[in-house]
């Protein structure tokens, strides 16, 4: 009896040892990324197949909320990687000193040059107004403002697309941004706290168009077989969102974190993105983009403020937005 017990105890010990040897990579990300329909589950399976590790996603609200959570936790955080910030947040993120350079580079298929060595891009998209094809499309903000078209947008103080739109108009119009907003005021049905509410209102027919991405119609086309949606191409160009990930400086598994960031630029990650996150992959997979993506509007000009500019200008731009709309 005694020997059996010793054996059992021994086995337990071996088992715990085995578990301890598999290191865990903890990734903080936004809610949508690791939902059942998001890229998370498939990417987890793909990476675990080659890393002999345990990948754990922790979802914490949207991109801005993820950064807030990391700041709240400081160096005490469990996160090894933060995934899902955009370039409007990276200057702020870098200033915290909580992130470390990874040295990962790749041949990115981005419409802009990428040189940041801390933040590694994994997908990108253009902000755009998504509307039904039956609506006559304006070709720039002035035309939209002069029309009777109704739009629904997100609040730049609580939503990343909302901030994207404010910076879009800032990048395109600079000092005139305030007057564009004032002219747009009567087109705006309402401003929602987040993307979901705005998109929901649009689908319910509360507005002719909603601020979203040029890639949004691809969801309706590919997942629902519905080709009635399109996005408006604006002559000013379209502001971009580039989503990035970075290694947390206090990570206890730095090699594993680097390995993940390198994996992020390969097929196993990038091929999952288009039809789960409904964005353009940062590195186009060898097989190309899924059928249906060729129907999407491709803006003539890509607009993007540098992360320093975005950080410096977003405060005043939001003030101008509020002043114009609060009349």
């Amino acid at each position: 009896m005694k020997t059996t017990l010793t054996h059992v105890a021994g086995l337990c010990f071996v088992a715990t040892g085995a578990i301890a040897e598999t290191s865990t990579l903890t990734i903080y990300t936004y809610d949508g990324f690791n939902s059942e329909w998001g890229p998370g589950p498939q990417i987890e399976a793909n990476f675990e197949a080659e890393c002999a590790c345990d990948l754990e996603f922790v979802a914490a609200g949207d991109g801005a909320a993820v950064l807030s959570r990391l700041k709240l936790e400081g160096a005490n955080t469990d996160a090894d990687i933060v995934l899902g910030l955009d370039t409007n947040l990276t200057a702020d993120a870098a200033a915290t000193g909580l992130f470390a350079a990874s040295g990962v580079t790749a041949a990115y298929d981005l419409p802009i040059e990428w040189s940041d060595d801390t933040f590694v891009p994994f997908d990108w998209g253009y902000f755009a107004f998504v509307a039904g094809k039956d609506v006559e499309a304006p070709t720039n903000f002035r035309e939209l403002a002069a029309s009777d078209l109704k739009i629904v947008i997100q609040d730049p103080r609580s939503s990343t697309p909302g901030l994207g739109l404010v910076l879009w108009i800032e990048a395109a119009y600079g000092d005139e941004a305030g007057s564009i907003w004032a002219d747009l005021a009567d087109n705006i049905v309402t401003v929602t706290p987040g993307w979901s509410e705005a998109y929901g209102l649009f689908l319910e027919g509360e507005a002719d168009a909603v601020l979203s991405y040029t890639t949004s119609p691809a969801y309706h086309l590919i997942a629902e077989g519905d080709d009635s949606k399109t996005s408006w191409a604006f002559e000013e160009g379209h502001y971009m969102q580039v989503e990035v990930a970075a290694k947390v400086a206090s990570t206890d598994v730095p090699e594993l974190a680097d390995a993940f960031l390198a994996f992020m630029t390969t097929e196993g990650f990038q091929s999952v993105i288009p039809t789960t996150n409904w964005m353009y992959p940062a590195v186009t997979p060898a097989v190309g983009l899924p059928e249906g993506f060729e129907t999407l509007v491709t803006p003539s000009t890509a607009l993007l403020l540098s992360s320093e500019d975005a950080a410096a200008k977003s405060g005043p731009a939001i003030d101008a937005w509020r002043a114009a709309l609060a009349q």
């Binding site: 609200g61 807030s68 705006i188 401003v191």
Partner: peptide
């Protein structure tokens, strides 16, 4: 109130204290 006021309020005119708190915590930290 937070979401009601913002969604139905039609814009930044309808900003409530709770939204300002949300912004302070989540966006501006």
């Amino acid at each position: 109130s937070f979401a009601v006021a913002l969604v139905l309020g039609g814009g930044p005119k309808a900003t409530t204290v709770e939204l300002a708190i949300y912004q302070a915590v989540r966006f501006d930290f």
